[in-house]
């Protein structure tokens, strides 16, 4: 007889924390019930995604690293999960109008589009499902939105007379080891800027373009950033007004501006802004 097993029990099983009796019942079901097996492998992938996006609790995270990742097969799955996340993060961001932060869209000037499309998301970014007639309309609306926003974005501008910006070096997703923790940036005091040094391995571009997102919501963009040496590394520095960085999870998408043709996606940089 198949015992009733919920998703939480499957998570506990995969993390090695399910009590022995329930574990035996689940394992028997894995062999005899195709539905249970399929559910288990789906939960396994979801766990991997939650680990990658830092959505596991500290204890689950520890169990994931010490128990779940013990086999080479699961390590391969984690590696693939990271790769897929990197690809998805390079794609246009679909958000509902409710998710668009107030400074970005001026509702009195333009009707909110159903979908927001990051302005430099062209070329390889725009492949696939977004190539529809409706997305073209959305692009036009968003360009208009950004034009309106850029003209009114005083709160996000860098403080010219602020003290020296506080530097932080961010490692891109493609170079981060699997056991590396979250990169952290302290929320700066009022009026102080932050200089984010984005490590790059591809320095073939004359200019770079960066977009800052807070939990998938677009915050701001910068053009004409340039790579420069920073010790033995090459970095693309981006100075951001401290006021922009309230505590939360952020992501920067960096692209290289090609001599001709569309921009080329370079990498993602994830970090968490913590309280002062």
């Amino acid at each position: 007889m198949t015992p009733k097993l919920d998703k939480q029990e499957m998570r506990n099983y995969l993390l090695g924390s399910l009590e022995a009796e329930r574990r035996a019942a689940l394992e028997e079901s894995i062999l005899c019930d195709p539905g249970i097996y399929e559910e288990l492998v789906v939960v396994e992938e979801e766990l991997i995604d939650e680990y990658i996006t830092n959505n596991l609790s500290p204890s689950e995270r520890q169990q994931f690293e010490t128990h779940f990742l013990i086999t080479a097969e699961r390590q391969k799955k984690l590696r693939f999960g990271r790769l897929l996340r990197r690809y998805l993060d390079s794609q246009p961001v679909f958000v509902s109008p409710d998710d668009i932060p107030a400074p970005v869209v001026r509702q009195d000037k333009i009707d909110a589009p159903a979908t927001k499309f990051f302005s430099f998301a062209t070329g390889s970014f725009a492949r696939g499902a977004t190539l529809t007639v409706s997305s073209a309309v959305v692009v036009i609306l968003v360009i208009l939105t950004l034009v309106c926003w850029r003209a009114n974005r005083k709160p996000d501008t860098v403080q010219e007379n602020s003290p020296n910006p506080i530097p932080y070096t961010l490692t891109p997703a493609s170079l981060r080891s699997e056991d590396a923790g979250t990169q952290r940036v302290k929320a700066p005091p009022k009026g102080v800027n932050v200089r984010l040094n984005l490590e790059v391995t591809n320095t073939n571009f004359r200019n770079y373009r960066a977009g800052l997102f807070r939990e998938k919501n677009f915050v701001q963009t910068a053009d004409e950033l340039k790579a420069e040496p920073n010790g033995e590394q090459r970095v693309v520095p981006w100075t951001i007004a401290g006021e922009v960085l309230s505590p939360g999870d952020y992501q920067i998408k960096l692209s290289g501006v090609a001599e001709s043709g569309p921009d080329a996606f370079v990498d993602n940089y994830s970090f968490r802004v913590t309280k002062k």
Binding site: I70, Q75, L83, S174, T201
Partner: peptide
Amino acid sequence: QPPPPSTTDSYQVELEY
């Protein structure tokens, strides 16, 4: 012993991407 975590080789990562 469990296998060591796979190292990050940027060439390999780019190829996979």
